[in-house]
Structures are given as C-alpha cells and as structure tokens.
Simulated scan of single mutants.
Amino acid sequence: MFLYEINENHVTIEELLRNHWRLGKKLVHELRMAKAITLANDELIQWNTPLQAGSIIKVAFSIPTSNYKPTPICAIDVVYEDDHCLIVSKPKGMSTHPNDARDTHTCMNHVMAHIKEQGGIYAEHIHRLDKGTQGLLLVAKHPLAKSIFDRMIEEKSIIRMYAAEVQGNIRGASGTISEPIGKDRHHATKRVVSKSGQHAVTHYEVVARYKNSCVVHLILETGRTHQIRVHLAYIGHPIIGDTMYGARVTASDDYELHAIQLEFDHPFLNKRIIVKDKQ
C-alpha cells in the first residue's frame, strides 16, 4: 500500500494508470476488480471522476513473495531507497541474481536480507550487471514499480552511465557504437558483433586521457550481455585487462567496469532522481 499525490488538475484514476503510469491492461483490470484505489480516507472513487491537483489517493494491492533466499545480513551498500525502489552498489565479483537454488550469496540475496529487516517480502531487479561489473543496480519494492520500471528500461528513459579505462586513445571526444551483438559460436560465454545478433547501442565520451589509455563514460541504450565490453573491443579499445575481448594481461588479471550513475523521472514521487556511486 502507498499514498500518491495527484500533481495536475482533472486527472482521473483511469488516466493515471493508463496514460501516466502506462500499466498493462491485465494489471489495470486486476486493480479495478480489487477496488485497489481509493481516496486517502478509504472512500471509494469512480475511475472516471476528475481529481484536483493535490488530491491524495491510496493504492493497496497484494504483494507476492520473492523467491530469493535472504543472506544472514545485508553486506552490500544501499545507496538510495524510498517506498517504491532501492538502489544498491553491487560489488565486483558478485552475481546479480541466483542461477540455481545453491546460489545464495548474490546481490539479490543480500537485497532480500535488507527487505526482510524492514518487514518486506518483495524485491525484483530491473536490470542486471555482469558478475565482473560493480556499481548501481535498481530494484523494485512492489509489483507496480516493477511493471513501470521495466517499461522505462525498454523505452530507454532510465539513463545508466558506466566508467571504464580502455587501451589506447580513442579518436575524438565522443561517439556512438551501434552494432548488433550475438553469441560466439566457439565460446559458451563470449559475445561478438554479429549481423544476426540483437540490436545494441552504446554512447561514449572520453573524460580523461593518459599516455597509453583513456577513461570513458558510457551510456547504454540497450542492455545486451557484455555489451560495453564487446563494443569497446570492436572499435579497437578493449577495457584494460579484459583478456576475453583482446586486451593485454595486467597485474590484476582482471578488468574494471563500473556502473557509476542512474538517472530517471520517479513515477510515484514526481521528481528527477540522480544517484551516483562512489568512485
């Protein structure tokens, strides 16, 4: 259950759900059948009744239990949180979510420990980060938020920024890599640029230059597996240490890719959210 303040005049509940939040038909029908939306004082309201700006409505609905087994304590940093979502900083070397029942120390297992401490039962990630990538991960705290944030990811209205140091110096200050990505037939986990692959777009900007490398900030339009790593290697500038994609071996024998910022218009709080991770 949560309260929501209508922020413009003459908006109906029907318009809020279908045009503003743009929920799916099935979910809208379920909310209608459950009489899930009332005024703040629990008074029923017709869905075609225009409301004035400042009106407070109550949205109440059943919440399913997520299947992630909570860790004993949450050992990851919660960078941002409200009633609808949270943003955590996933450590490098930790999977976003379990792949089987034995996988109980992923980022979502730690998130579930945090949710459980608050008396909650639901948490679902909106996007994912590769195991070797650290940084910000957006998590929904109820199904309505999940539905809306999923749609926002599809429509590219959640801006995800990453930072990486790459081999060599990229020509020019910025650019866009628009190349489809598919599976490598010769390597189970590797991805390649392929004409038969999925549409993938990465924007980059050079923010620092050194003798034999440069630091780039990258914004994803799509979220393909290993997208940034594949695209940077494709233009001849793999992430330093990313030997899978052609980089030289380093002392750490590993690459560094960091999800440093998330930015979006919050659908329930009616404000712009910008969250930055520690670098």
Rank of each mutant, 00 (worst) to 15 (best):
Q261L: 07
V11N: 03
L129H: 01
E165M: 15
D254W: 06
M94S: 10
F264Y: 11
H186I: 15
P64S: 09
L17I: 11
Y204V: 04
V78R: 00
Q261H: 07
C85M: 11
A173K: 08
Q52N: 15
G119K: 03
Y210K: 15
E154A: 08
S147M: 09
I63M: 07
V249M: 15
Y68Q: 04
T222Q: 05
A140R: 00
D242S: 09
C107E: 02
N67Y: 11
Y68E: 05
K195Y: 11
H186A: 14
A164F: 01
E154L: 10
E124R: 05
P98R: 06
D184I: 04
S194G: 07
S62H: 13
H97V: 08
S194Y: 02
I274Q: 02
K146I: 07
T189L: 12
A145F: 03
M161I: 08
A173E: 14
E43R: 05
D253R: 11
A60Y: 01
P64M: 14
P50T: 12
Q46R: 10
L144D: 00
A233P: 04
E5W: 14
H127G: 06
P238D: 10
T243H: 09
C74G: 08
K35N: 14
A233Q: 03
S62C: 15
Q134H: 10
R209L: 14
W21G: 02
T106I: 10
F264S: 04
K195Q: 14
D150C: 12
G223I: 04
H187W: 13
G175Q: 06
E155N: 10
G93M: 09
N19F: 08
A163I: 06
M161S: 03
A123G: 07
L136H: 00
E155Y: 11
L257D: 02
K271A: 15
I274E: 04
I177S: 04
D184H: 06
H110M: 09
I76L: 06
T225S: 11
S194M: 08
A36K: 02
R171W: 13
P50S: 12
V215E: 01
H199E: 11
R209H: 14
D184P: 01
L137D: 00
M94V: 10
S178W: 04
V192S: 08
Q118C: 13
V111M: 01
T222Y: 02
A140I: 05
C85P: 01
E165N: 14
S147A: 13
T225V: 11
L44W: 14
K116P: 06
H258Q: 12
E263M: 07
W21F: 09
L218S: 00
V230E: 01
S196H: 14
Y162D: 01
K271S: 15
T106V: 08
C74P: 03
M108A: 04
L218A: 03
H84T: 08
K26V: 13
G223F: 03
E5M: 14
R171P: 13
V79D: 03
A140D: 07
